[in-house]
Design a binder for these strands. Structure first.
Lengths: 131, 131
DNA sequence: CTTGACCTTCCAGTCACTGGAACCCTTATC
DNA sequence: GATAAGGGTTCCAGTGACTGGAAGGTCAAG
């Protein structure tokens, strides 16, 4: 398979696939004309990567996950640990964003949004934290 | 004020303050020795920036907000519009993260996490999307 | 005079791509 | 055989918002 087809089938842009090769996540063969020649196993890996990235795993996490995936004697505990750590990070991030949202939402609602200059949003941003 | 004190008082690292000068968000004066000399108004701006960044506004948003803040004839609608757009982005991001979290959480719970190799997390990541 | 805590600039790295330029290969059509 | 479209290739630069580190200047205290 050429890169275009693999892109279509894996859901990843060609650029990204080239990048993944560059950082050693996939190692496609080469045709005589220099084109990358992807095997089914490469496609499979790329789809795996796409899914893992969609779930927010970092590239380094993905690298580890791929290794674990290919290590048939892995302990599922290792995978679970990684996934749990990632889950916690996501939950932290959500909490942080929710706190932003709550504050912002309040500010937005308190602002008249007309053509007068008085604006509680700017007032809040400019507020002294303490003296 | 020297940068160290402004850092302490604004809550921003010195490095960040230098960076903000570099991109034109603040324009402190200079002492004869080359040290940055911050006025109260600079400190005030930096605290404003810190607060806005904490709420997740991009640097470019911050630049606009600062301009609006200093334009005493602004319309509060302009501020509100910017804040609302940002709020929507945050809400989208939250939704996206929640969807990740839900999937991940399910996967984590379905995985025994023992020393056997069987792992639903990897299975899911490797699943074909369609044929 | 030296020590240590400041301050300065400049350069490189982060993360995971993404865009673009310049060029090569393949296939079809005229 | 020329040409054009639509693949593919490499390499370089840029993104956002810092952050780390090196190499060096300045200042106050002892």
């Amino acid at each position: 398979m050429n890169i275009g087809e693999v892109a279509k089938r894996s859901g990843l842009p060609s650029k990204t696939i080239r990048y993944y090769e560059e950082i050693g996540l996939v190692k496609p063969l080469r045709d005589v004309n220099g084109y990358r020649a992807f095997r089914d196993s490469d496609l499979h890996k790329l789809a795996f990567l796409n899914r893992a990235r969609t779930l927010g795993f970092t590239i380094e996490d993905c690298r580890t996950l791929l290794t674990l995936y290919e290590d048939k004697s892995r302990a599922s505990a290792d995978v679970k640990e990684l996934a749990e750590a990632h889950l916690h990070k996501i939950e932290d991030k959500i909490a942080q964003l929710q706190s932003m949202r709550d504050t912002l939402s309040e500010l937005v609602h308190s602002c008249a949004g007309d053509n007068r200059p008085d604006c509680p949003i700017l007032k809040d941003l400019a507020a002294e934290t303490a003296t």
